[in-house]
């Protein structure tokens, strides 16, 4: 397997020239990405674009047919899979489900359940949780491993709209508090754009990558998601009322805005500047 554990300084994971095939079909090709510690990178793209395949390659679950996936030596990964359906005939409490990934010190499970805000359902059956609570339980299970890199595949699926923005705010808070890297797949363009440092838009191949602003104006992005999506982002963009520092970063205001405005596709990080 090309899941090599050796990577340039600073990066948690580096994907270079990645191609994954299934039988004779190319699922993804020519993918380049890296995630630094403390960085939120979002993968967007239409259905069947290979987003999950890319995630699986990063996790070492889908071996690359060419190219490489390199993890920083010793980096621990926390994984929140897509559409997890549990068999209701398997009785499990939330606490037990979260701790299934290993044996942990006393109190650790309670601590992560509190961190994601579901300590009150620790002793409930995992099957009785709401969509949002279940996604948080998955997140808790990933956090229990004290990950350097969090990999989330459509973390807000089966969560209602308010719950979605809360969940993205939680992911952002976890990043801020733990300083871990986050790599996530999403199709909620607006929510993703507002809470991410770097966007990678794929459709089998790389369409465009970079700062959310740059990506939202990119012709391939516009072609995939329609000018409506690009315009609505741009609209919020020009109506914003806060100030930026030289870099275009507004980290201090970011948290505050994440609570107030997520769901609007509001973009806080740098705007008309060029980003490398």
């Amino acid at each position: 397997m090309n899941h090599v554990r050796n990577v340039a300084a600073g990066a948690l994971v580096e994907v270079a020239g990645l191609e994954v095939r299934a039988k004779n079909r190319v699922l993804v090709t020519g993918i380049e990405l890296s995630v630094m510690a403390g960085e939120i990178v979002s993968i967007i793209g239409p259905n069947g674009a290979g987003k999950t395949t890319l995630i699986r390659a990063v996790l070492g679950l889908a071996p690359p047919t060419s190219g490489s996936v390199r993890l920083r030596a010793g980096a621990r990964i926390g994984y929140v899979p897509q559409r997890l359906v549990l068999n209701p005939n398997l009785p499990l409490t939330t606490r037990r489900f979260v701790g299934l990934s290993g044996t942990f010190q006393k109190g650790r499970r309670k601590a992560v359940l509190e961190e994601v805000g579901i300590a009150h359902v620790a002793d409930s059956s995992i099957h009785d949780l709401s969509g949002g609570e279940f996604q948080r339980a998955l997140l808790a299970r990933a956090l229990l491993r004290d990950p350097d890199l969090l990999v989330l595949d459509e973390p807000a699926q089966a969560v209602d709209i308010t719950g979605q923005s809360e969940l993205y705010a939680l992911i952002e808070r976890i990043r801020n508090e733990r300083g871990c890297g986050v790599l996530m797949v999403s199709h909620d363009l607006h929510l993703v754009m507002s809470a991410t440092d770097k966007v990678i838009c794929i459709n089998g191949h790389m369409c465009c990558a970079g700062h959310p602003d740059a990506v939202s104006q990119h012709p391939e992005y516009v072609a995939l998601f329609g000018s409506e999506a690009a315009r609505s982002l741009a609209l919020y963009h020009h109506n914003h009322d806060h100030t930026h520092d030289v870099d275009g970063h507004v980290h201090d205001e970011h948290d505050h805005h994440a609570h107030d405005h997520t769901g609007h596709g509001h973009e806080h990080h740098g705007h008309d500047h060029k980003h490398g």
Binding site: G60, L61, P81, L84, L90, F97, L100, S101, G102, R145
Partner: peptide
Amino acid sequence: WRPLLAVTVHEDLAAVEG
């Protein structure tokens, strides 16, 4: 017991968890 149960609940998750 634990690895058997972990694989039963979700294979990919168990694989990522080692």
